[in-house]
Design a protein around this nucleic acid. Structure first.
Lengths: 324, 324
DNA sequence: CGCGCATGTTCTAACGTTAGAAGACGATCG
DNA sequence: CGATCGTCTTCTAACGTTAGAACATGCGCG
């Protein structure tokens, strides 16, 4: 050591009072000299906190989730947190472990994008870990939810398409029977907005999509074109579905946007490189990450108030696919 | 407890001999009853191992790196490891911390995709943590390197284009002055393969690309078209560059593949959804992840033999953009 | 009968960090 | 001159896990 007691070192490291300036400097010099770094394991054992949080998603290689992870890492670092990533493959078993906070692993909090779970699963969890949910909404007693205004953004999307002269507007990615599911919320917002413009969904113009994948976008287009060949616009529950939809439309000989306009959610980077480029609802990912981490940190610090909802800004990014 | 000593519990948990079957069952029942999970922190403190490894990349939202992360998580889980992700933004400062293994954090190993570092940085690191490098090759005393055969795959790519009748084949993504850099290795493989077919790069047909982004692909096309307007094929150092190249070519009125064939590396999913779809060199990501983790585990377990190179399989996936 | 073996037990220490209690010392102040 | 304050020390315990040493049974075997 540098002629000082262990306790004083702790006091220096934690910037406690009752340490003379000169002593402090001597200790800091010694720390630098020895290249000392406090052991996370020791601290965790002592404090019960690991400063590790886990982002739980079905797969990390989906473009939107990659962008989300990027935003969360950028926001976590200045807050002294480090991010683990866990993939559930949308399996109930794995999502349950996430919902229980990986007991024994010393995870401080979980940022959870659920897929297979229902509220009963959540209510039955044994441990209650600090948790913030993204994407799918699941009512829960103490977990917060952070998202854009899905009803409002659906209304923005419909208003834009109507403004472009579209009247027979279909929807891909409905999730009938799963109230609260992202696709259902967006579909209901879309439908309400249509009504607000004096329109209704064209018969057969709504296709389900259990997963928001390119494949389900392609399948949805096949379904809708078979049942409602006159649609002149498709609102897709995600950009990934929209990418698949554009490809399927082009294969069917439909021109985008001349014959059919296409619009999605998420503002994934690829939307700028499709042909035509993709009109999309862009969430403010930076704000989303900030809100998520702030809420999570409050939970980690012991906040046990009922779970609340945070809304982050979005904007409609108009590109070629909507004819704008 | 369930009428048994602490030591016996440890012996049961670690499946040691000298424990009667009946006792073992009693202990396991108690463990299940109490929902006991060993604390990672305690174990880490005792054993010095955390079973945490870090994947270090410039940004996790690049499609190839997302797919890589997915493959690594899938491979890490059955091996009892959990994956942290750290982003360096290609900053030297942050890459240095990664190369030093995040001292104090108790990270067992690092999977590192370097960008800004050079061999001197690596040689100067103070701690030697278990490390495996991907992507960019940096010679190092004890870190392993896992990759596809970049020279061989470049030869495959060129052979395919020549077989399609292309003769004025350019290259995007060279990194002059950075020997060992991925773009340089692929460029030299491309150039050697051309010579093998009795060809040479068209004058002005090679464009640099410091980063493998869509933007640098677009910039590369502008450069090459200005200097060598007669090129009939472009080999791009990554799929992301190829996506940008296709877009820039189409904007210039060049038809892909009729006028110019395009080909990339990585087999990102988006390559199946571009128009035209993208011909690419596909690494076997599963094998890459397995090799990487096996090598890393050997290093974690104390292997101090000189760093070696592991080669994983690749194959050429022919789609529309090469006219195949 | 005594030896060894299988199956335990108890006790101790260690990993690295932090906090609290109690006390020591000098300087300052009323 | 005694009380108080600022600064620091020493000592102890605790977090959860694991390993080793030493010892205690009870059983079978030669």
């Amino acid at each position: 050591m540098a002629g000082v007691s262990l306790k004083t070192v702790t006091n220096v490291v934690h910037e406690r009072p009752y340490v003379k300036q000169e002593t402090r400097e001597r200790v800091l010099a010694a720390i630098a000299e020895l290249d000392y770094r406090p052991s996370r394991a020791g601290r965790q054992l002592q404090s019960g906190r690991s400063n590790l949080i886990t982002l739980v998603v079905p797969r990390i290689d989906e473009p939107y989730l990659g962008g989300l992870a990027h935003a969360l890492i950028s926001a976590a670092t200045p807050r002294g947190l480090r991010l683990l990533i866990d993939e559930t493959s949308s399996q109930v078993e794995q999502e349950l472990e996430a919902a229980n906070g990986y007991p024994g692993h010393g995870i401080d909090g979980v940022i959870f994008s659920p897929f297979a779970l229902n509220p009963e699963h959540l209510a039955a969890r044994s441990h209650d870990v600090a948790m913030v949910m993204l994407g799918q909404f699941l009512p829960d007693s103490t977990a917060d939810y952070v998202a854009i205004d899905n009803l409002g953004s659906a209304a923005d999307a419909v208003a834009h398409l109507v403004g472009q002269g579209r009247r027979r507007i279909g929807f891909l990615g409905a999730q009938p029977g799963r109230p609260g599911a992202l696709g259902e919320v967006r579909r209901s917002g879309y439908q309400a907005a249509l009504v607000g413009h004096g329109l209704v969904p064209p018969s057969g113009g709504i296709a389900p999509g259990r997963r928001f994948t390119r494949e389900s976008g392609e399948a949805g287009v096949r379904e809708v074109l078979a049942r409602a060949p006159a649609v002149d616009a498709l609102v897709c529950a995600s950009d990934l579905m929209a990418v698949g939809a554009i490809r399927a439309l082009q294969r069917h000989g439909a021109r985008v946007p001349d014959d059919v306009a296409v619009l999605g959610w998420d503002n994934i980077v690829d939307g700028e490189y499709t042909s035509p480029t993709l009109t999309t609802v862009a969430p403010d990912l930076g704000a989303l990450a900030d809100q998520t981490l702030d809420a999570l940190i409050r939970r980690i610090e012991g906040d046990r108030t009922p779970g609340r909802e945070y809304v982050v800004p979005h904007r409609l990014v108009v590109r070629q696919s909507s004819g704008g």
